[in-house]
Design a binder for these strands. Structure first.
Lengths: 317, 317
DNA sequence: CTGTTAGCGCCTTCAC
DNA sequence: GTGAAGGCGCTAACAG
């Protein structure tokens, strides 16, 4: 790869002039400008970004540490993030990490000058963060200067209101507390019931069961007395599992039981479309990138992102 | 962030000694070694990798440009790649690109000193590659020094042999030519039929239909005369679509028709498990990383990766 | 064993 | 307008 020295030599000017032409390029005689451009072309010269980084003390690289359990969900994050980042001349450096130790070591490796900032996505464990240029997205920890959380209470409330509007007043809820979000979900659930003057039935709620399939089993075993006709689950994966289980018991979806996913909808052939809350990855990415570019106006507490209600009739796009 | 100068000053030694302690650390008096280590600890000093990169002319960054149509497939690639790369102290810089122009511009941005090498994954269009440190994975173009292709002929042959062994002798094939791989698939298909002394029936093969759902429709319309009892499709997504379509026509899977995916198996609740060819992302990543680390022994033509036969009885793990 | 020097490629003063 | 010099943080070669 040719350097600025090669160009300056070939063009018969000094390095400074070459630099001037390629950056601000104001106050350079047209003749030497042309000479530089010609030499650049000839040598196929492109400034070394590493040398520029050393000088500017910033690389334009954003580290993204994915700590999510459900790997398939990361694709959405990554695609949206990369799209927004590259629009701002920033690069996305990807790491996967499954444990706290892995996250910390990844963080160490990325913050030695390589990355200007780091995002941690979906960590379900507490993190001790010495750095101030770390942003947490959908993580269990919320008491951090920069973090984005999904508004789980709002999602649950919206879900219940929708289900009730569809004539479903016996709403079961299965939501293992992977995230620390269960409490918020329950809050939204109760709030919606209250606002609709519906009683809260403890036996319809399963938040700490080891397996959600066992929870559904319990619901089905007591179906006669419980008489539930809607089921709130944590995400699309759960929804799919649950639908299969319901169908195995000859319960039709949504005829007998309407299944609602609190995160991500289900749009697969051969599986009934279900209502769901969907979080716009695009909105999230936009917010993050704006934090990254305008460092000043970061939030102090957690920033909250609300999801959209998607119903089988209101199809996406 | 503190620099090597801060450390040398605090430790009362020269920069060189600090550097020596932190790298080779041989031939340093124990006393000064301790002093350096103490200063490093105190200042929480870590060498700036960018400065090191400038000197060594390598960043340890590998650019990965994903040009796949099916975004969901990329997760597998990325996870396996990142795992292997980070084991070798290499970083994965991610870009998505949908068109030839986007790939080229991404390539430009990454090869200005930022990335040591670049991988392009799943590009379905021809690429003009001036760089010699670019590796193509599962791309349409094969006439490039470094590329990995999946052995589609082998996959189709294996698939047919398996289906025949299961008593399915009327094997339909739906495989739109997205990849330039259709020809190879057909070759493997024919080969297996030949070796099993079965006739080749042209009307069972659909490789250029606009929509594969139309192709299946044709097959179903002529089911009475064609009498097909197995169906080869390109990937798991297709398989899922096709299964739904078959079930809508009251064809049972695999009872009436055994569906086989030529790339990626289907392991979802509520959907019948099907036989498939699966490519080990891990094996692929390992091969790529070995190319990256031992630059000498690169292949000249395309390197070919064969997939594993996964059947519903031989479950993964 | 250790300090000094030079230079990786670039940009930014500061003189001319 | 333009060139020379200095320095970003680090390591390697060369002296001591």
């Amino acid at each position: 790869m040719s350097t600025i020295n090669d160009v300056s030599r070939l063009a018969g000017v000094s390095k400074a002039t070459v630099s001037r032409v390629l950056s601000g390029s104001r106050g350079v005689k047209e003749a030497s400008r042309q000479a530089v451009l010609k030499a650049v072309e000839e040598l196929n010269y492109r400034p070394n970004v590493i040398a520029q980084s050393l000088l500017s003390q910033s690389t334009g690289c954003i580290g993204v540490i994915c700590a999510q359990e459900n790997i398939n969900q990361t694709t959405g994050y990554l695609y949206a993030l990369e799209k927004h980042l590259s629009q701002h001349q920033k690069h996305l450096l990807l790491r996967f990490a499954n444990t706290q130790a892995e996250v910390m070591s990844a963080l160490d490796e990325l913050t030695c000058g390589l990355c200007d900032d780091v995002l941690i996505i979906g960590a379900r464990f507490p993190l001790h963060l010495p750095h101030d240029n770390v942003i947490l997205v959908d993580c269990a920890q919320t008491d951090v200067p920069n973090s984005i959380q999904f508004d789980h209470a709002f999602a649950a409330e919206t879900a219940c209101n929708y289900l009730i509007s569809q004539g479903r007043r016996q709403i079961a809820l299965i939501h293992p507390d992977t995230n620390g979000s269960a409490e918020r979900v329950l809050h939204g659930y109760k709030l919606a019931l209250e606002n609709n003057f519906l009683p809260f039935n403890r036996s319809l709620v399963f938040m700490d069961s080891v397996s959600s399939s066992v929870a559904l089993q319990e619901l089905l075993n007591n179906a006669a007395t419980l008489n539930f006709n809607a089921l709130l689950v944590a995400d699309e994966q759960e929804a799919q599992r649950v639908i299969a289980q319901l169908q195995a018991f000859n319960k039709s979806v949504p005829g007998d039981i309407m299944v609602f996913s609190l995160a991500g909808s289900l749009q697969l052939p051969g599986i009934p479309a279900i209502p769901a809350i969907e979080y716009s990855m695009d909105a999230m990415a936009a917010r993050i990138v704006s934090w990254l570019t305008e460092k000043t106006q970061r939030v102090l507490g957690a920033s909250v992102l609300r999801g959209d209600l998607i119903t089988p009739t209101i199809r996406k796009r």
